[in-house]
Amino acid sequence: MNAFRLAGDMTHLLSIILLLLKIRATKSCAGISLKTQELYVIVFMSRYLDLFRTYYSLYNSLMKIIFLGTSMCIVWYMRSHKVVRQTYNNDEDTFRHFFLVLPCFVLALLVHRNFTFIEILWTFSLYLESVAILPQLVLLQKSSNIDNLTGTYVFLLGAYRGLYLFNWVYRFFTENHRVRWIPWLSGLIQTAIYTDFFYYYIRSWKNREKLKLPA
């Protein structure tokens, strides 16, 4: 464990907690894409299959349970909670996210490290996570009024994988110098997708004005 990775995990955890608090406090999920949340449930379920098979550390197991639990909880709130579900804007959240799941799965079947069930799903989860934010970014472009909590949520979610990139550089130079193209490139693409959002988010923060993404 290194500082970059711990900072990345904490940033990721903070983003999810922030979203959960926003939904619970405001009893509203306006501006949040259910599709991105569903994609993240698929990402965590396909990545954390080894949760009950391989024990790395208490931290590792605890965080996996927290990520799985909170992401499913958020989807439950947006789909089934009697008040929150009324605030979900279905016809704005239009991204056909299953167009992301299938190509990622096929790609994982073609490009992977070992052809085993666990490895294929782990690789699939990396590919899917790199594009999982797209429905949320599309929804933000349509939203005329992005509230601060939603903006901060997306910012932290994008920042966490950026910190992981530093973690991989650090581990490459300090550990076994092992090259890992699949997580590295997936993480790079994932972070690159946020650059547009990062630019407008930081600019709105500097100019103290409302966050607005160009359509």
């Binding site: 995990d9 080894d50 590792n60 782990w122 997580p183």
Partner: peptide, 10 residues
């Protein structure tokens, strides 16, 4: 299974 170091990441 040879343990894959990156798998201890989240």
């Amino acid at each position: 299974i040879q343990s894959d170091p990156i798998k201890d990441e989240l």
